[in-house]
Design a protein around this nucleic acid. Structure first.
Lengths: 196, 196
DNA sequence: CGCAGATTTGTTAGTAACTATCAGCATGGT
DNA sequence: ACCATGCTGATAGTTACTAACAAATCTGCG
């Protein structure tokens, strides 16, 4: 008996999702994003176009989907509360990135390369980063009603995430040869003049 | 120097462009972005859809187009070179925003409100901010070949722009009642712990 | 096991953003 | 006046995405 709480339905759903993303990234890399249609991806994954849309709302989501937000929020909660805000946010992001590189390096690199070279994906990548910003701010603002404090938290979070983005892009442009966490810490340090 | 010898063609082109944007923003605010078609906008402006596409590559550009990048680059060049990088970038952005508010307040507010309430526009807004980042980095990196220095400049620029974005959104959410330059300086100060 | 209810999937038909192409027209320098 | 150049419009696509319905599949319960 399988002890996983995931029902057969849930497991198959997750499976289909991963299959779709894998085939999509492979095809996009091989033929180009624009030259590959939703039908191509659906066919390669062995499902109908309609089913694909039930798993990914847009073509872009095929490349953009990941679990970054949730993991960052968790890493954030694990930070020492005495540290300054900037450090907590920055370190949580660096840790999440380190984990991601260790588990999914090749897929992550492929996805980032697609995001860099495809204008439509570049725009949506920034948008997904904004979603991360919201997740971080929500975590940090739990129980806060002071709009002024929330404003300061949001400003700091946005700055950290933007810096992290620069490091991510640089990492992908160098095809992952440099160490991502190190790059991120360097970027944070030069933006804030503080150690991370 | 760009000669002010705007030919009749150029003037009419700019005129058509402005007319299209004005009608577009008006219709989007009245009926909603998604519920308004390109044809609606073209018809309201008295041109064909094909002509509209020759002025704006995408529906989103109808809302997003402005001259922010160029003005920011100019303001940046006018900063005192002795100041730290962060201050130069931050102040250039604040100055540009101040000018924009003085000349085009209502249109700017309407455009921002649309960007906030329309997911597709929100994503592209972040992307257009990224274009500003590139413009700023290009200005600051003129003559630089050191990739490390460029990396630091990019990190700092990204951080400043992200913070400015937070202030911009906050300003629009408050319907422009607060002073935008002040909001921006507050956001910069709380993110960097430095005066701007 | 078998049945009822919920979830997932496929099919079809449609909307609207965007592109390519070609032909007609205004414009600006000679 | 005249020709090259660029602006405009009509037409006919392609493709991402949605709505609606019908068929297949899973889950939980008796």
């Amino acid at each position: 008996m399988i002890a996983e709480t995931a029902s057969l339905r849930e497991r198959r759903r997750a499976e289909t999702r991963r299959t779709l993303q894998t085939h999509a990234v492979r095809l996009f890399m091989a033929r180009g994003y624009d030259a590959t249609t939703i039908n191509d991806v659906a066919e390669a994954a062995g499902v109908s176009a309609m089913t694909l849309y039930r798993h990914f709302a847009t073509k872009e989501d095929l490349v953009l989907y990941d679990e970054f937000d949730r993991e960052t929020a968790a890493a954030l909660a694990a930070q020492q509360q005495e540290e300054p805000l900037r450090q907590r946010i920055g370190r949580a992001l660096v840790q999440t990135a380190a984990t991601a590189v260790n588990s999914d390096r090749d897929l992550l690199l492929a996805r980032l390369n697609l995001m860099i070279s495809t204008p439509a994906l570049q725009a949506r990548h920034l948008d997904s980063q904004y979603a991360t910003e919201i997740a971080v701010v929500d975590t940090l603002c739990a129980g806060t009603t002071d709009p002024d404090l929330e404003f300061r938290i949001r400003s700091t979070t946005a700055a950290c995430l933007a810096v992290i983005h620069v490091a991510l892009i640089r990492w992908a442009e160098g095809d992952g040869r440099q160490d991502l966490p190190t790059l991120m810490r360097q970027a944070l340090t030069s933006a804030f003049d503080t150690a991370f």
